[in-house]
Amino acid sequence: MKRIIIYCNIFWLLFAILTCIESYRLKLGEINHPGPGFFPFGAGLVMIILSLMGLFITITKKEEFREVSSEEKIRWWNIIIIIGAISGYAFSLDRVGFLINTFLFITLLLKVIEPQSWKKSIIGGVITAIAANFVFNVVFRVQIPSGILGF
């Protein structure tokens, strides 16, 4: 756990340094005429101080950090599938369209995350896609791409 906290603080330190460098490039301006980089530079600077403080406290703390033990294994695969499914949905929305995308998305999640039978997953996907299309495209008249189906 101690190592993870140290890594977190190092990450924030690097992020803050990068922010300061980028802000400096944007020009800081003068005190009575601040430039576009002034405010983010200040926030980055404070972040550098905070992450250094966090690092110092973690490294110098003598007491043992409690290791978090989990009885159940983390199902990383589920997380990766969800991230992949959302990314796929986003990038194919304009071409494939809302109805088909939603059907595929829901069917995939129902089949893979907490596995259901193919029949249940497909019925769930069809019902959700039609209902969502009706609510958002017909009732709320929100413009979501219709894609290859054209409606």
């Binding site: 969800i82 986003a90 998305f105 999640l109 129902l110 995350i113 907490e114 959700t128 979501i144």
Partner: peptide, 21 residues
């Protein structure tokens, strides 16, 4: 919950998309 979370994710996708299409 498996029905619920798929629906929640779908609403999240729609909600973030329809702000600017």
């Amino acid at each position: 919950y498996h029905y619920l979370f798929s629906l929640i994710l779908l609403l999240c996708i729609i909600g973030s998309y329809i702000t600017n299409n």
